[in-house]
């Protein structure tokens, strides 16, 4: 059984078609990188997996669940097994960093306050932010926000981790640290879906890759397959990013 499956998914906003008959499958425990230029539908595809956007046609499966038909409590039950890092981290700015990380635990577990605090500390330690437990998100830099967002996404050790542009706006060192953390998470058995246009980062994290352009799949497979692709846009993209 695959962790995520897109079956001929199309989506348009007004007259603009963002996803066009998109199909792919992500095996469990693998890291799948969605690559492509800005505005090609990568983030929209990710939002389909979370169920934040409904497909105009086609179906999106998370394990056995057809996300396109779920709503309310059933959708919430599927989401409890996901962690999401948004492009701008989307930390709750009325809560401290620690409370942000503790939020999923408070909502979905019956752990004591002490257990939740201890676990939130551990998650923040994983991303190097243990000192910032009581800091408010507004006082963090962009990179720190992203790391805190990642700690929140991993708070409940989700089976499926969705990451939107993990290295955007980060310095190379922080970017590498986040890549290493994602690799470690994958090694723990978590399925990763990473949206990025950073090829070095994708090479470090990914097992399988797909390149999107104007909502269509241009190429998919291993990084070697993409490097060897004869599709001009794929070649241009991989070369522009320092690939093969």
């Amino acid at each position: 059984m695959s962790a995520v499956r897109f079956d001929r998914v199309s989506k348009a906003f007004g007259t603009r078609k963002v996803l066009d008959d998109l199909s792919f499958e992500i095996p469990k425990g693998q890291a799948f990188c969605l690559l492509g230029r800005s505005g090609t539908g990568k983030s929209v595809a990710l939002r389909h997996i979370i169920g934040l956007v409904k497909a105009d046609s086609g179906r999106v499966f998370v394990e056995d669940n057809d996300i396109t038909t779920l709503g309310g409590r059933q959708l919430a039950d599927v989401r409890k097994h996901m962690g999401v890092l948004f492009q701008n981290a989307a930390l709750f700015d009325s809560m401290s960093v620690g409370d942000n990380v503790a939020f999923p635990m408070r909502r979905h577990t019956d752990w004591s306050d002490a257990q939740i605090r201890e676990r939130a500390m551990a998650k923040l330690a994983d991303v190097g932010l243990v000192e910032d437990f009581d800091t408010m998100p507004g006082d963090l830099s962009g990179g720190m926000k992203k790391r805190a967002g990642l700690a929140r996404a991993m708070a409940l050790d989700p089976a499926l981790l969705l990451v939107d542009e993990p290295s955007a706006g980060l310095d190379p060192m922080t970017s590498r640290e986040i890549d290493e953390l994602l690799v470690k998470t994958k090694q723990g058995g978590t399925t990763l879906v990473v949206v990025t246009h950073n090829i070095p980062s994708a090479r470090a994290i990914g097992d399988r890759f797909a390149v999107l352009d104007q909502g269509r799949m241009l190429a998919s497979g291993t990084i070697e397959a993409l490097d060897a692709s004869e599709e001009p846009l794929v070649q241009a993209f991989m070369r522009a990013q320092g690939g093969g």
Binding site: L52, R79, K80, F86, A90, L91, F92, R107
Partner: peptide, 21 residues
Amino acid sequence: AEIGAMKVTEQIDALEANAVD
């Protein structure tokens, strides 16, 4: 203003993604 700011900074999406209505 508060809910509006949460909307434009994807915090509402983050709530939904955390299985919160």
